[in-house]
Design a protein around this nucleic acid. Sequence first.
DNA 1: TTGGAAAATGCAAGCCTTTACATTTTGCGA
DNA 2: TCGCAAAATGTAAAGGCTTGCATTTTCCAA
Lengths: 341, 341
Amino acid sequence: MNSKRTTPTLQDVANATSVSTATVSRYLNFPDQVAERTRKKVAKAIRDLGYSPNFGAKAMAARRTNTIGAIIPTMENAVFARGLQAFQDELRLHGFTMLVASTSYRPDIEEEQIRTLVARGADALLLIGHARNPEVYRFLKAQNVPTLVTWAFDAGSKRPSVGFDNRAAMREMATKVIGLGHRRLALISAETAMNDRAEARRVGIQDAMATAGLDVKDLKVVETTYGIEEGAAAFEQVMTSTSDTTAVFCGNDVLAVGALHRARDLGISVPRDVSVVGFDDIELAQVTYPPLTTVHVPHREMGRQAGLALTKLVKDGMAPEATELKTRIVFRGTLAPVNTS
Amino acid sequence: MNSKRTTPTLQDVANATSVSTATVSRYLNFPDQVAERTRKKVAKAIRDLGYSPNFGAKAMAARRTNTIGAIIPTMENAVFARGLQAFQDELRLHGFTMLVASTSYRPDIEEEQIRTLVARGADALLLIGHARNPEVYRFLKAQNVPTLVTWAFDAGSKRPSVGFDNRAAMREMATKVIGLGHRRLALISAETAMNDRAEARRVGIQDAMATAGLDVKDLKVVETTYGIEEGAAAFEQVMTSTSDTTAVFCGNDVLAVGALHRARDLGISVPRDVSVVGFDDIELAQVTYPPLTTVHVPHREMGRQAGLALTKLVKDGMAPEATELKTRIVFRGTLAPVNTS
DNA sequence: TTGGAAAATGCAAGCCTTTACATTTTGCGA
DNA sequence: TCGCAAAATGTAAAGGCTTGCATTTTCCAA
């Protein structure tokens, strides 16, 4: 009969049922507002026609997509993969879907991705860290897309965030390290350009140094991109350019693993000759030899809470309160008192 | 001035520019059809207003979302994270965005997620492995959503896929291992329920055993869920329940890392007392001690090619041809000839 | 100059749902 | 049986973009 085979619409269902589109729509969204008899008829028609609501039309009419975007540096970094997974699980629980984009730590790509996800109908956005071109925040505001910052917590910021205090966490670690007698310190840092977390971690160490009466300038800092091999190279650079370093902080566990590996190759014993500490506490940290002393960050919990906060925000328009998560130091085998022999 | 703060629309941009909405739309979608002068004006207005196209309206008018869904077991598994990242990067190059869902290796959740992503307007879907309820494939067909299977390659299947031959890869590894004199073999396998890859890898070992005249039944198999700790426990189980095992295959590198770790704790020397081999070749494999001998899988390349195939499919309706990627064995330190002493 | 093709722009009809508001039907106490 | 509130359903107006077709502008050869 109908020669042009086109996918059935609400209208088709309505016609087939001798009912209005409004009723079919209500059947779909608020079934209990529809009489039993009608419900049956509509259900049948939908089944017979193989009807499925058109997403675009639905999104347009409802002004909502039930989709939340997440923009992270890269999924290859286990900490983000972990957080994102937990985030996604939480969203699913509340009927939301996750749109993902990654930036490779590049601000320009991040900006592009923010615009892309907004254009793709994200009802809200998850972002990592606060540092960002103000224009981006203006855009987000103009678009009326609520945003949650995570992986960082800044009591001073007005933007809602779920995260932890990178600076304080590293300060605590540094205090321990210094307490063990270490005076000649080095840091293998992730790149700090547009990465407020890496920056904060460095400052945390310097806080502790200052408190201990050390000269902040004496912290030997090497910046490097993310990766095991990069960490290894940076470690070698630190050890060859300074002769008296006794403790090496690493901006994250992956760098630390690289450092540990290179130390072995170089015949440097950890922790006897030099102590090494990481940050994040990914699985990896438990299976290095010796196991890595590091700062434990509750990545999953962070992702979960971010998911919860964002769904609440979208559903009830409830602005989430800033949530600070606690980190803690996990002592394993790579940190020891300075070797005075 | 304008008291009702509402997000700007195409119309607003058109008004601000004294141009028609059609022109603005063309500026957005086919910039070279718009005169230079006009382009400048429109660009400015868009920036000033913070305009971003409304997704629902766009999807509805264009009958396309430019969104592609990916459904994987979990992002916490580095191999998927890696592949997904490459997939995403490729999609971005072609103007597509990625929708992600994960299944925790559960078929029921996978089915739910497939329906969710289709309902969310995914133009196409990326799926892992072939094994799947036939009804799902029927649904996908009815909804007219093209699908690409990856992480597995099966010449016999009609479904387009970009992947590698799990069975042949493991067979090759097993052949090497047996060639080194190993006769008492064990496998720590990922769970095989609904996981055709894990299954194929086991069969690959048994192929090699059969060829070498070994009894396929003699392969000691322990199935376990994913995780370092799980791999460790499985290894212990293998070593305590059999006394003569000289080579332990692991379904993936993470399990192998666990095994290696437990071996150390148990005072078992690898590879002197027992050889251990993995599968995947994730970063981790290079920094264990000894470094892990494993099957290298080109995860990134796979993700990239999958992205390419899928964008082509959606853009030009070109059904992708099945693509087989090559794996190769990476010899490092955990495989040695059987110890005959 | 001028005519005409090509380039640029405009017009307006969809695309498919949701939802405020209006209308009809139902159910039940009096 | 009537009247009325509640329940069910209908009407029709958005909602913002794309695109086929129509119109205007630009450009260039003659």
